[in-house]
Structures are given as structure tokens and as C-alpha cells.
Design a binder for these strands. Structure first.
Lengths: 213, 213
DNA sequence: AAAATATAGATAAAAAAATATCGATACCCT
DNA sequence: AGGGTATCGATATTTTTTTATCTATATTTT
């Protein structure tokens, strides 16, 4: 069915936050960090952090902590973020634009090299230095440029069609921001981002909070 | 420390997807659904769905399935999405704009009634029928309007400051899209959305996929 | 009407994730 | 230098989540 299970998902999801904070600490001139410090920052228990970092293979120094540089490196290679991945974005609507405008991606080894859209009024435009191409050119261009990641931000009704074009163009990783569960070949991995999931969690938290007051 | 742990997180995160799909099915004239059908759609195992739905208190009919109307209702009340929540959005940058433009929120019981920003060139503008106010007016306005949810989309460096203003204005639920771990009183719940988490998961999936080829 | 198939619920089992404990190591302060 | 404190690593435990199994109920097919 395409999507093998990934283990340690909660840990993996925390990695980018570690990375961000570590880079910030390094900028502030620090060179070591303890899980206590990190835990305070992230509202977690130190033991959670220690277990997460164990995954990356780094070892810390008892009594001291971890070397920030080493950690940054280890997390990056754990996520395979050492080599920048090139991606294309499909759907230059408001969400697409927001993603094109997001500065943080370079920190995460992602480089969006072009956008595609079906709307003639958008084609040819330039958004944050990335050109918007006709979606019909997608298969040809991604094949030629050897891009293997696609960020899908089209309206739901065009999602499957757009995904098909990506697959045709040799893309094998799709970051899916639509509400559609895509049907893709086994070798293609899909990560679906459901924005409302966070809202659901917030709602439940708020509820529980109000009950305990 | 503010954030008690929430249980069944994965199940809660799947609820909005069930809701979306169920509404779509209802529109297509269906009135019952089995976990097998739902599972096929979501690339999950039927047992997962059954366990998730159990949380909402609905019971299905062996041999038949669940009544779609009942399910929709049960999920909504599980998430407390029966009564629309009013929210304000802080930071009318590209992400803020994208959220203001997102049509799906009404399905999820969320109504963004106004936006705030510090940039004079944005103040007074109207984005998708919502006015952008001076951020200094936030505490007064949210108090008066009795809004208790805030969506935080400002640049990282202003995040804490903006959060403080929200707290001052009586907001007790913050949906945090910044990269900052906010410091808020205990009664305020925060849900942080780390966009890069999904990218991290996708990277790891892609890696594993490539290893098994 | 009987047999085959599909389904949920209850209970049990397995797997994964979070948390605790304890010993060893380093740093800091007097 | 010595005592107190902070820290990590290894191991064990607990909790939570996921998955399996089995039974009863409904539907469909023959």
C-alpha cells in the first residue's frame, strides 16, 4: 500500500526543533548544551531529549552535556539534511505562496527551485525569485532537472491529477498539503500535512484545561 | 509548566480527516460507512479506525458499519467543534494571509474574526474580509469581544511579545506557528505547529524507501 | 433456507514510547 | 583538595499505543 511504517515518529518530529534551537545557541556563542537546558526550552523532560539524541548516535559527556556542533551535524545526517534537497511546488495559491516565502527551509536542507500552476494568470509570474511554470511542463522539467520532491498545494479537486503528473516526472517524495489521500505507486512516499490536526489537538487541550479549572 | 499531556494524540490528529471524508460521503448520498472503506481511503488498518471511533463514544452495527450522521456529530462533540470558536490572527505576513484565505476552517468550527499587525503599511487593510488592526489594540479588542483563541504568525523575534499581549487580552489558547517556545501562564494552552516536522518525517521515509530499493 | 461474507465489539497480546533508577564522570564552590 | 551538584549512559519499568483474535450480528448469495 505504499506507506511502510516509520518508527520513532515522535522523536523524528522533534528533531527540527532541536536543530533550530541548537543553531540559535551556537550563534549566541555557546558550544555545549545539556538536556536539562533543552528540556526547559521545549517543555519536555530531560530524559525525552536524551532518548531522542541517542537515535542520532551522538554521545554526550556525563557532568557536561553535548557538543553543539556535533549535535547539529548528527541530527542533520540522521535526517539526511546534509545535502540540500531540491523540490518543486505545485499550486501557487495563498498557501503555496506562503511556503515559497518561508525563509526557514534553507535551514532544513530544502530548496524550492520552481513553482507550477494551471492558472494562466499566474504562469510566468515570479514569486520570491522562483518562476511559476505551466503545470503541463512539470513532468518534462522535473525529469530533466532530476528533482525528486514535490510540494502539493493545489485545491483538493486537482490533487490526484497533479500527483499523477509528479509521478510521471519521476518525483518520489510528495509533501501533500491537500485534504486528499493520494493514490500513488509503491515507490513514492507521501507525507500528508493536515493543518486542522493541530487545531483538533488545541481544541482538546483547551477543553481539558477548562475542565480542570 | 502549562502543558499537561494529552492522550491519544495520534487519534485526535486523525479526527479532522475522518470528519472531512465523512462529510464528503454524506454529500454523495451515503449514510453508513465501514472501517474497511475508511481504512482503504486513509491507508490505515481498519482496526485503527475502529479504535479511534471508539473514543468518540459511537457504536457501530456488526455486519453493517457506522451511521455517518452519528459519526460526524460524535466527532464534532469530541473535539468540541459544535460551537464555532472565534479567533484572532496575529501577523499578516504570507503565512497569516494564507491562513486567512483558507476556506476549510469553517468545517472545523473556527472563525477568524480579525487580524493584527505592527506594520503601519498593513494596518487598515482588509484581507479576505477581515480587517487588519494595529497590534496595540489587541488586548483591548480581544477582551471586549471575548475572543479566546489566537493564531500566532509573527516573525520569531516578536513571538513572545505578541503572546504576552494575547494573554493580557484574555486569550487562553494559542496556535503557535512560530519557531519559539512561548512562555505563558499555566492556564493558557499552546499548540505549536512546526512545519519542518513533516519535512523531517518525509526525509526519513524517503531514506528508508531508497534503502529498501 | 443455508452458506458465505462482511462487519463491529470485547478481550488479549505485542510493540513502542515514555519514564525511572542508579552508577560513573565532570564541574563548581568553598 | 573535598563536598556538593549536574550530567550522561545503561538498564529496567511503566504506560501508552497498536495490532491480533475470537465471537456475535447482519447482509448477500446460492
Amino acid at each position: 500500500m505504499g506507506n511502510k511504517k516509520v518508527q520513532k515518529l515522535p522523536s523524528i518530529r522533534r528533531m527540527p526543533t532541536y536543530l533550530h534551537k541548537l543553531k540559535q545557541m551556537r550563534k549566541n556563542g555557546l558550544d555545549t548544551v545539556s538536556t536539562t537546558i533543552m528540556a526547559r526550552y521545549m517543555n519536555l523532560e530531560p530524559i525525552v531529549i536524551r532518548k531522542d539524541l541517542e537515535l542520532t548516535g551522538v554521545t554526550g559527556q556525563p557532568g557536561v552535556g553535548y557538543k553543539i556542533d556535533e549535535l547539529i551535524d548528527a541530527i542533520k545526517s540522521f535526517l539526511n539534511w546534509h545535502n540540500t534537497a531540491e523540490a518543486v511546488l505545485i499550486g501557487a495559491g495563498s498557501l503555496g505562496r506562503a511556503l515559497l516565502g518561508y525563509e526557514g527551509f534553507e535551514d532544513y536542507g530544502l530548496n524550492i527551485i520552481a513553482a507550477f500552476d494551471a492558472d494562466p494568470s499566474k504562469i510566468g509570474a515570479e514569486i520570491n525569485e522562483r518562476e511559476v511554470f505551466d503545470i503541463n511542463r512539470l513532468p518534462e522539467m522535473t525529469t530533466r532537472l532530476q528533482v525528486n520532491m514535490g510540494i502539493l498545494c493545489v485545491p483538493n479537486e486537482f490533487a490526484q491529477e497533479a500527483a499523477d503528473m509528479m509521478v510521471e516526472g519521476g518525483i518520489n517524495a510528495i509533501w501533500n498539503f491537500t485534504n486528499v489521500s493520494l493514490d500513488v505507486p509503491d515507490h513514492v512516499v507521501v507525507q500528508r500535512e493536515v493543518i486542522a490536526s493541530g487545531l483538533a489537538v488545541l481544541s482538546v487541550k483547551l477543553n481539558q484545561q477548562m475542565l480542570t479549572d
